[in-house]
Amino acid sequence: MNHTPDPTTAGHGGAFDPREAAALLEQTTRQARRQFAPAQPWLLAIRAVLVLAALGAVWLSVRGQHPYHGPGASALLIVAAFVIINFTATVAVRRRATAGVSGRSRFSPAEITVMVVAYIAPFVVLAALGDTGDNHSGTLLTVPLIVAGLAWAALSAVRADWRSCGTGLAVAVTGAAGAAAGQAGAWAVTGVGLCLTLLGTAAVIARQLDRA
């Protein structure tokens, strides 16, 4: 079968070896998937370790309290630092991955609003109920996780993103298990649950990225 020589094959003389083509196809697909991935496995693994360390530190500071009066200022500072680092790194990586991309990969303003409301609303409701004191800090940790996890799962289901849907459900289950563990136990259960969720998500994404 003869084809008209293609001037845009310059440098390859039109003879592009099929083995080279297969290698190039695999390499390009793998690189592109990595570039466009909004969550990187290495970042998720780091977040898993950090959340375990942050919530574990709080649990160590509250586990012997009878009655429970909540974590000290230094422990809360560790948690606040984790939340800020986590949020900043996630947004930066996502922004880099979706630079120049438009369409379904990007969240719509409505989706962003739903997530922000899902995270803030539980604090507002708990404040209205008067459940915001230090002795309710376990509740303040777990209830927003349940609501935000379910909201994330619902948004992901609408997008038919079943991996993210699973992550959202795992976060919600972690929050529920933490809530059942009591005020002090909530910190340990939530730390372990979120760590496992993040590690599991990292493993699934790493597998997806490696499958060219």
Partner: peptide, 15 residues
């Protein structure tokens, strides 16, 4: 063609 293969494989990696 190497370049076009790269272009189309890159675009196909997007949803």
């Amino acid at each position: 063609v190497p370049t076009r293969l790269k272009i189309i494989a890159t675009l196909a990696a997007l949803p």
